[in-house]
Design a protein around this nucleic acid. Structure first.
Length: 802
RNA sequence: GCGACCGUGGUGGAACGGCAUACACAACGGACUUAAAAUCCGUCGGGGAAACCUUAAGGGUUCAAAUCCCUUCGGUCGCACCA
């Protein structure tokens, strides 16, 4: 008689065993085929792990553990994305240094993770805020700088007028500061940018080479937002100046009845002495500048704008003079910051033209421009368009572009929504940007052998009055000498965004302690690319895109060996609070796994987090489910008392076991963890129904269960006399054991199920049909009717009568 | 507004176009117990007298639809005037 299932004792025992034997430490260069599954490394927040973390962690642990049993050399790493706002805000409040807070939080996270029994290779742990790590983040940044892909630009930031601090977009809620509710304004600052737009086309094209979920690919493609069109130059009347616009509809050029520039467009200042209503224009610019993004979008319906009186443009196709306006519906950051307005065929232009009584000229027939803009460009013929008249739109577009090119007033142009990455943050807790500014030499990189450029130790982390980070007050650190000319120079006081360290961390895992390179060629060659990367949908357009960009850049320099970092990308649904809302501290619905492990054990917790629902769907937490999974493991444990020593089995049970091997293996691969566990529960129920099972049958169940519930599986496996699970092979199902000799058919009449019969598979179709027709429950439904057709498919017989 | 995904019992959820509700949770009944917990064994979507009807609602395709198509309603996520 086995003792009661005691998860606390068993889990401590096996966690110690795994640590002592270092059996999850991956060996670079081993002969076995490699496998590199990865999760998104966590931000070590002060709240510790909540129940959302273990969902992806357990899922990929299942994959990692299964791969080991399948004979792979597995690298399943863990690390900490440790720079970030919450830690800095905590430091501002308490005066405790962020490095100390981070250090303590990591210790807590690590112990929580270890109690969940993950097969991480802790010897390769990385911490992005460790100078030994961010040395290489800085090193890669300098490569961008050398290649001309890091540059300075004047970019507005969100600035809280009350906290006196620059805010990230996500800290601006409903137009006010998330923390103090203070007014947020835009403030223009000179910031470092990374030229991700140079990789826009490749970031789209190379998606064909990777195995990402379709929705992830679609989101990236939409975010990058490629559109084809043309640049067209309009002349400004009485000036030797062109106003260039981007348009995707050059075919509608004859319908351009006015132009609009964004309020920030340089044309306005350039011609300020010719603009008769400059005071009005200035007032409009000012109003636009203090509008937050939120307000701009809220006011989307009502178009506002001011004409630039005295400025007039000439439509190059027909020589007509058209007015120029300014309006904030034209964005500085997209295209050229100026548009030609074709109100007849663009909804926004239409609304604007209606609001200010501007002329509307139809150039594509097919709509009713009295009522609304006709924007369908797939159909319709050109009208009022000179030499384009009568052409279909799809013919007119290349025709007008050819003409524009020939006349020297335009060119073909591909445009992207994607914008360059603002890489500066006015924050303390981030990687220092390793550049100094010298009056003589300009921006000069710190020599590579002087990296890392470490953050200075400070006591006060609050920002300065002008929105710079507290680094601007660290005068001793800030003032330095120019590496080039040795004159006095100033360090960059901005730091990198927290996306920097996570853009390349997977490379560091391959060789985490290398102090000569970010990773050795040998380690990269052996381990990269990441075979399977699971993460949240919310990172699809930022982290995932950024890291693909960095990787391609490193690939172009010959520093990594593949053009894509991740071969496969999947994503998990969020774990919601038990009230169905997103878990957050402010809602007070955060659930911590530590609350469940003492009562139920890590294995029960892991099983439930995988069983609770479809992996890719969001799901509310429900404590009672853990109890059900504990009950299941108790039943598995008690199977030990039912093992029949003689080891005889029967064909019936063999079929069930092999069906389970097939189902569980396939479901793990498809991330259908809930149905895999259901299949193991069903098999366990089958053993109970029979009342006995063989040693091998129980062994097979423990191996199947081990990726989800590794501790109990190891314990039972050991008790049965097998060597540790690391040395066990993943079971292979026997196709012949699955072959059925009889099948239960559902008999339908006109698609409605009327009966069920079990028939031998050896019967031919004719015999099956006859058996169905002669079935007692079927006969009444056939009375007085003619059998038209009988369809026999798989386990369905459909009798069509009429 | 645009895009993606989704809508199945009291609850979480199963279901290559092929027997809807697997597997759990909760509830209820029984056994065991002085009793309770635990455990074990059962019952368990709703409506209808019945034939039957029922996968958000309505239509379509098909021998056959939760699954494919169209319309409507509701929800979640992402993006917000992208010329």
């Amino acid at each position: 008689m086995q003792e009661r299932y005691d998860p606390q004792a068993i889990e401590a025992k096996w966690q110690k065993f795994w640590a002592d034997t270092r059996c999850f430490a991956a060996v670079t260069g081993a002969e076995k085929p490699k496998c590199f599954p990865m999760i998104e490394f966590p931000y070590p927040s002060g709240q510790g792990l909540h129940v959302g973390h273990p969902r992806p962690f357990t899922a990929m642990d299942v994959i990692a553990r299964k791969r080991r049993l399948e004979g792979y050399n597995v690298l399943y790493p863990i690390g900490y994305d440790a720079f970030g706002l919450p830690t800095e805000n905590y430091a501002i409040k308490t005066g405790i240094h962020p490095a100390k807070v981070t250090h303590d939080n990591i210790i807590r996270f690590r112990s929580q993770l270890q109690r969940l029994g993950y097969s991480f290779d802790y010897s390769r742990e990385v911490n992005t805020s460790d100078p030994d790590y961010y040395k290489w983040t800085q090193w890669i940044f300098l490569k961008f700088f050398e290649q001309g892909l890091a540059y300075k630009a004047e970019i507005p930031i969100n600035f809280c007028t009350s906290c006196k601090v620059g805010l990230a977009n996500e800290e601006v809620v409903d137009g006010v500061c998330e923390r103090c509710g203070g007014e947020v304004v835009r403030m223009v600052r000179s910031q470092w940018m990374l030229k991700i737009t140079a990789y826009a086309q490749r970031l789209i094209d190379d998606l064909d080479t990777v195995d990402y979920l379709e929705k992830i690919k679609a989101q990236q493609v939409n975010w990058i937002g490629r559109s084809e069109g043309a640049l067209v130059n309009f002349l400004i009347k009485d000036a030797d100046e062109k106003l260039t616009v981007f348009t995707t509809r050059p075919d509608t050029l004859f319908g351009a009845t006015y132009m609009v520039v964004s309020p920030e467009h340089p044309l306005i200042e350039q011609y300020h002495d010719r603009i008769a209503n400059m005071a009005e224009v200035h007032a409009y610019q000012k109003a636009a500048a203090i509008k937050s993004d939120f307000e701009r979008s809220e006011l989307a319906k009502d178009k506002t704008g001011v004409p630039l009186v005295g400025i007039c443009a000439i439509n190059p196709v027909n020589g007509k003079e058209i007015p120029v306006w300014t309006s904030d519906y034209v964005l500085t950051g997209y295209g050229t910051g100026a548009i030609m307005a074709v109100p007849a065929h663009d909804e926004r232009d239409y609304a604007f033209a209606k609001a200010f009584s501007l002329p509307i000229v139809e150039v594509v027939a097919g709509g009713d421009i009295e009522k609304e803009a006709y924007t369908d460009c797939a159909h319709g013929k050109m009208v009022n368009s000179g030499f384009l008249d009568g052409m279909d739109v799809d013919k007119a577009i290349p025709a007008i572009i050819d003409w524009l090119v020939k006349e020297g007033i335009g060119e073909r142009k591909v445009n992207f929504k994607l914008r360059d990455w603002v890489f500066s943050r006015q924050r303390y807790w981030g990687e220092p940007i390793p550049l100094v500014y010298c009056e003589t030499c300009g921006w000069v990189p710190i020599p590579y052998d002087q990296l890392p450029l470490e953050l200075p130790m400070l006591d006060d982390f609050s920002p300065t009055d002008d929105g710079s980070s507290c680094l601007a007050r660290a005068k001793d650190w800030l003032h330095t000498t120019c590496p080039k000319c040795s004159r006095s120079a100033t360090r960059e006081a901005d730091t990198m965004p927290n996306w920097a360290g996570s853009s390349w961390y997977f490379l560091r895992y391959t060789d985490a302690h290398n102090d000569k390179e970010f990773a050795s060629r040998e380690a990269l060659d052996y381990w990269t690319p990441v075979d399977w990367y699971n993460g949240g949908m919310e990172h699809t357009t930022l982290h995932l895109l950024y890291s693909r960009f960095w990787h391609k850049f490193l690939f172009d320099l010959g520093l990594v060996l593949t053009s894509e970092p991740y071969m496969k990308r999947t994503s998990h649904g969020m774990v919601l609070g038990s009230n169905g809302e997103k878990m957050s501290k402010s809602r007070g619905n955060v659930v911590n796994p530590d609350d469940y492990i003492p009562t139920y054990g890590a294995d029960s917790f892991r099983t439930y987090i995988m069983f609770m629902g479809a992996f890719d769907q969001p799901i509310p937490w429900n404590e009672l489910g853990t109890r059900g999974c504990r009950r299941f493991l108790d039943r598995v444990w008690a199977l030990q008392d039912m093992v029949n020593g003689t080891g005889d089995t029967d064909a019936e049970m063999k079929k069930k076991v092999h069906a389970a091997i097939k189902k569980v293996g396939e479901d793990y691969e498809r991330m259908k963890f809930n149905t895999a566990i259901a299949a193991m529960m069903a098999l366990t129920n089958d053993f109970y129904a029979k009342g006995t099972l063989t040693k091998d049958e129980l062994h097979t169940l423990t191996v199947l269960l081990s990726p989800v519930a590794p501790h109990i599986s190891e314990e039972i496996n050991e008790a049965l006399g097998f060597s540790p699970l690391m040395e066990q092979p993943w079971p292979v199902y026997d196709e012949s054991a699955l072959v059925e000799d009889a099948v239960e058919y559902g008999i339908q009449v006109n698609g409605k199920v009327r009966a069920r019969i079990t028939l031998s598979l050896s019967l031919d179709t004719k015999a099956v049909e006859e058996a169905a027709l002669s079935c007692e429950e079927v006969k009444p439904h056939l009375e007085g009717k003619t059998v038209r057709k009988i369809i026999v498919v798989k386990n369905i017989i459909n009798i069509v009568v009429g």
